[in-house]
């Protein structure tokens, strides 16, 4: 499943980042790496979502979210 299918309050683990290279590097620098645990804080039905990773909150748009593979914990 991708991050875009994640549910509010759900805890997941990153499997793979499949966005453009430059965006991938930025996400990795922000601490979203393979195996990182994340918690979904809030999301819109179709669109951006807010997640907690390594103690900080990130808002990600639909395009990025739908290109991050995750697995449930």
């Amino acid at each position: 499943m991708t991050l875009y299918d994640a549910k509010v309050g759900g805890e997941y683990q990153i499997r793979e980042l499949l966005v453009e290279d430059a965006v991938t590097r930025r996400l990795e620098a922000l601490g979203l790496n393979e195996g990182t645990k994340i918690l979904i804080l809030n999301r819109k039905k179709k669109g951006a979502l807010i997640l907690k990773v390594r103690g900080t909150r990130l808002a990600l748009g639909k395009h990025i979210a739908s290109h991050i593979e995750i697995r449930e914990m």
Binding site: E20, V23, L27, L30, R57, L58, L60, G61, K62, H63
Partner: peptide, 10 residues
């Protein structure tokens, strides 16, 4: 381009 949001929320 796919301009997707990426921002930290303080």
């Amino acid at each position: 381009a796919n301009n997707s949001l990426l921002i930290e929320l303080p």
